[in-house]
Nucleic acid binder design. Structure first.
Length: 565
RNA sequence: GCCGAAGUGGCUCAGUGGUAGAGCGGCUCUUUCGUAAAGAGUAGGUCGGGAGUCCGAUUCUCCCCUUCGGCUCCA
């Protein structure tokens, strides 16, 4: 444990001590340090966020009486079933049971702590939450208090300031402000994409389509509603029924709204006899999916019930797995570097509830590990984190608040092709089952756009910006020339908007600036006289006064190269 | 789904047991302006929905919906 973690863990003890002073009936459970802070969970503690300042004040008061963290041998907690459960487990596994005492507060604890309690000085309680005992939904829900601590006031202030700054990048705030999307209470978790948001979706999909066509991908569109038999065959009905939208009809058939594309891709592959010469067969699609996510999990664009993926199913022979994975990792690097996004990989291994035999799982996991090692990229392993049909490599990203989200995923599947009896004729004349690689690079377009909004704080690179150029005539007599400029931009397929309101130039600049439009073209007497436009960037910088054709030439290059700015 | 919190004009937010208020935005008029907000006037809200208590509820109570912070889950 590093020093900061020690400090935070010690602060968690102080928090528990303060809570017990104020609420003697509360039962402390556990209180570890975490990334950026610590928490402590209590049972029988009914408080609201308004009580946090009171607890914090008590902590400041108590810590004055604290000196050192002493290792003691006796228990301070009588009648605490949570602590007792931990003690019983430690005894069962013959582990040492230790307690730490500071002031009058004793806690079951493995340590370590800061050497001097006086170091606990710069801390803050942050928020209140519910959390299940030992992380299981079957257990009782406890009251969790989150807090953070630092060694200096400045570090604490900086951290709190960063949190505030991050909130300003929140896609749920910026997205609607920029007119990209909205939500309505009649469709929880299902975004309405407004014209500007659709522009971004289309640009992302166009880019996806171009890059994948080059690499031998073909595109399909398949039914959004299918009979439940399709999902019984794939195994999804058994594994994910509670997360599917079901459609009842007048007839006996039960249908379900498509929650993922794989079964339909299997149908397409199986619709004809296939040869090893057809492989790898790469079938992509961007169909709309619906998943009935639990209400409490919905979160802006990051967790939705309706979304589109930049999906593809690649049918390969076993020999082709490695090379195909490398191709996909190359695509991943291309797609993320173009936005300057930092990502890392996570390998998910065989889950408890899995399909197939353990041996082929082991083999598949070994293959993926080898590929990850060779990629040279940072990766972590999540035990039992695979899909029910195979191990997977996820792409992880952080949002503005530092929360982890999965975007892309590349999954290996030996099982579902078997379920669909997929076959191809091999070179030796025998029939074999293909392996499928399920892969998305953006992940869901919704989540990816959420990440992009926060990453760029709304100031998208020009190629993605819904409006690339705002034309600002200074007075009405400049309107006619401004319209000519507007037309020229349109001819060059540059998205522009002419601000023809009777407002001052400053006011128009302010509005364009707040909409994060990459370029403003200001048009007044001078520009008309010299047949030019005056360019202003959203950074506030005044750029060249130049002929419109020259501006178009430059911005065209920037757009075509997908330059970051 | 669970624990906790919030919901007042398009947006940001005041406010009260006696039938709602500001700024911005919108609209109209005036202004024709040179790099982040010109001036005046005007419209706009069944105070998230339903039920209850009360002479009277936006305000108090209960239920529901949506959203937010977490937990759990995530093909």
């Amino acid at each position: 444990m590093n020093d900061l973690d020690k400090l935070r863990h010690s602060t968690a003890h102080l928090l528990a001590a303060a809570v017990l002073e104020l609420y003697p009936q509360a039962k402390p459970t556990i209180g570890p340090p975490i990334e950026n802070g610590f928490y402590y969970d209590f049972d029988d503690l009914k408080i609201s966020e308004d009580d946090l300042p009171k607890i914090e004040a008590k902590m400041h008061e108590l810590v004055k009486t604290w000196d050192k963290f002493e290792l003691v041998s006796h228990s301070g907690h009588v009648q605490n079933p949570y602590k007792q459960e931990l003690i019983d487990e430690l005894e069962k596994s013959n582990q040492k049971i230790t307690y730490y005492k500071s002031g009058n507060f004793v806690d079951l604890c493995a340590g370590p702590h800061v050497d001097d309690a006086k170091k606990i000085k710069f801390f803050k309680s942050l928020k209140l939450a519910g959390a299940y005992w030992r992380g299981s939904e079957k257990n009782k829900m406890l009251t969790r208090i989150y807090g953070t601590a630092f060694f200096t006031q400045k570090e604490l202030d900086d951290h709190l300031k960063n949190l505030e700054e991050a909130e300003k990048r929140d896609h749920r705030k910026i997205g609607p402000q920029l007119g990209l999307l909205m939500f309505h209470e009649t469709a929880p978790g299902m975004p309405y994409w407004l014209p500007k948001g659709v522009t971004i979706i289309n640009e992302l999909v166009n880019f996806w389509r171009e890059e994948h066509t080059k690499r031998g991908y073909q595109e399909i569109v398949s039914p959004l509603i299918n009979k439940k038999e399709l999902y019984q065959t794939s195994g999804h009905w058994d594994h994910y029924l509670e997360n599917m939208f079901i459609c009842e009809t007048d007839e006996k058939e039960t249908y379900a709204l498509k929650p993922m594309n794989c079964p339909n891709a299997m149908i397409v592959f199986g619709s004809q006899t296939r040869s090893y010469r057809d492989l790898p067969m790469r079938l992509g699609d961007t169909d709309t999916l619906h998943r009935f996510e639990r209400s409490g999990t919905l979160n802006g664009l990051f967790r939705v019930r309706e979304f589109r993926q930049d999906d593809a199913h690649v049918f390969v022979t076993e020999d082709q797995i490695e090379e195909e994975y490398k191709n996909i990792l190359e695509i991943t690097e291309k797609f993320y570097s173009i936005f300057d996004l930092k990502y890392r990989f996570r390998l998910g291994t065989r889950p408890k509830k899995f399909m197939g035999d353990a041996k082929s799982w082991d083999k598949a996991e070994e293959t993926l590990k080898k590929i990850l090692k060779e990629s040279g990229k940072e990766y972590i392993i999540e035990d039992e984190g695979g899909a029910f049909y195979g191990p997977k490599i996820d792409i992880l990203m952080k949002d503005s608040l530092g929360r982890d989200w999965q975007t892309g995923t590349i999954q290996l599947d030996f099982q579902i092709p078997k379920k669909f009896n997929l076959l191809y004729a091999d070179s030796d004349g025998t029939q074999k089952t293909p392996v499928v690689i399920h892969r998305v690079i953006y992940g869901s377009l919704e989540r990816f756009i959420g990440i992009l909004i926060e990453h760029f704080a709304g100031a998208f690179p020009t190629w993605l910006s819904p409006i690339q150029v705002q034309i600002l005539p200074i007075a009405d007599r400049h309107l006619e020339y401004a319209k000519d400029v507007s037309l020229k931009l349109a001819m060059a397929q540059i998205r522009s908007h002419l601000d023809d309101r009777q407002e001052t130039l400053s006011s128009k600049i302010r509005d364009a600036q707040m909409q994060k439009i990459p370029y403003m073209l200001i048009i007044g007497d001078k520009e008309i006289a010299t047949k030019t436009v005056a360019e202003r960037g959203r950074s506030g910088k005044q750029l060249a006064v130049q002929p419109i054709d020259e501006f178009i030439k430059n911005i065209r290059i920037e757009i075509d190269n997908k330059t970051l700015n």
